[in-house]
């Protein structure tokens, strides 16, 4: 086993040498890169990475530039997970045959993909990787929309959000379906570790990522990625919006070990109303019209029920 990087506090963490580079073309204030930096900096091991089509991939590999100081592959929208799983399978085979050039180095295999690429279009590929038990980490950069193609709804888009394919207007309050519970689905694969993370809670993030790197088998990480362009807030507010999301429990931070054991990893001291989170973003603006009050009420009710459920699961230890 390679040694885990010691990160006692933020000062120590800030001595990391980033392996993700600037002058990429992500929007100013994009949370995708904050998440990627936190994850890559959580280890000093070699990295074998993939990115499925989406903002992260499109903005970090524009000819003639790369923004990655690591082995990196892109194939298509749907198959970043299998690309990295293939590399991992090859690594294992070479190791077994004693043909690794640097056998003492144990690379980490990470696949980055958007919610569109994970919840929808790449879902069967991810499911296959997890069923086969590859030693990989799949990270969803969850901005709840197909951002790179202009804001179409995905099965991660939450209820009431206005998207280009589910626009709010005179007859509609926007997205009608509720967000798919991917963590539950991936836990049901019996994965050794699945977790939800948020970039504003960097310590919780590092702990989970390091745990994910340490376990044997497929790891699923759902990372909340506040999108200034599609969620419609000012770029400077990315961290403030993320705080509203975790403190309103819209994005509860928790982990599920070995498919069953659930732990809540962040309990806000003051839980804030869901409408404070929704009201800070243009995509939910229309929900504050009197005729849409029932959607606001439903939002709060769903968040409360989910939090109740998570607490009961944690208590029961199942």
């Amino acid at each position: 086993m390679s040694e885990m990087k010691k990160i006692k506090n933020l000062k120590e963490f800030s001595t990391s040498a980033d392996r993700f580079e600037g002058a990429n073309l992500l929007c100013p204030g994009c949370a995708h890169s904050i998440i990627v930096r936190e994850i890559l900096n959580a280890t000093n091991d070699d990295l074998i990475l993939s990115a499925s089509t989406g903002c992260l991939e499109v903005c970090t590999a524009v000819y003639p530039y790369t923004s990655w100081d690591a082995s990196w592959i892109h194939i298509g929208f749907e198959n970043g997970s299998t690309a990295v799983a293939g590399a991992e399978a090859m690594y294992k085979a070479l190791k077994r045959k004693g043909r690794l050039k640097q056998p003492d180095r144990e690379p980490k295999f990470v696949s980055f993909a958007g919610d569109g690429a994970s919840y929808d279009i790449g879902f069967q590929w991810i499911s296959g990787c997890f069923e086969r038990g590859h030693n990989i980490m799949h990270v969803v950069l969850d901005n709840e929309v197909y951002a790179n193609t202009g804001g179409q709804r995905s099965s991660s888009t939450p209820i009431g959000s206005s998207t280009t394919t589910a626009p709010a207007g005179r007859v509609s309050y926007g997205e009608k379906q509720n967000k798919k519970d991917m963590l539950a689905i991936m836990a049901a694969h019996g994965a050794p570790y699945v977790a939800q993370v948020a970039p504003n809670k960097w310590k919780d993030m590092i702990k989970k990522i390091q745990h994910g790197f340490a376990v044997e088998g497929p790891v699923f990480i759902n990372a909340m990625s506040a999108c200034t362009t599609e969620w419609k807030f000012l770029p400077e507010d990315t961290i403030a919006i993320s705080d509203l999301a975790t403190d309103s429990l819209v994005f509860p931070l928790y982990e599920i070990i070995d498919g069953t054991k659930l732990n809540i990893t962040y309990r806000p001291k003051n839980v804030i109303p869901v409408k404070d989170y929704l009201g800070a973003q243009g995509r939910f603006k229309h929900l504050f019209k009197p005729e849409n009050k029932h959607v606001l009420d439903e939002w709060q009710k769903r968040v409360d029920e989910k939090w109740e459920y998570l607490q009961r699961r944690e208590e029961a230890g199942v």
Binding site: L10, K11, G22, P28, G29, R37, W202, T238
Partner: peptide
């Protein structure tokens, strides 16, 4: 005060 909040949250390694 060298808290490094700016370092961790800067998206652009700047």
């Amino acid at each position: 005060i060298d808290c490094q909040f700016c370092w961790i949250y800067c998206p652009d390694i700047s």
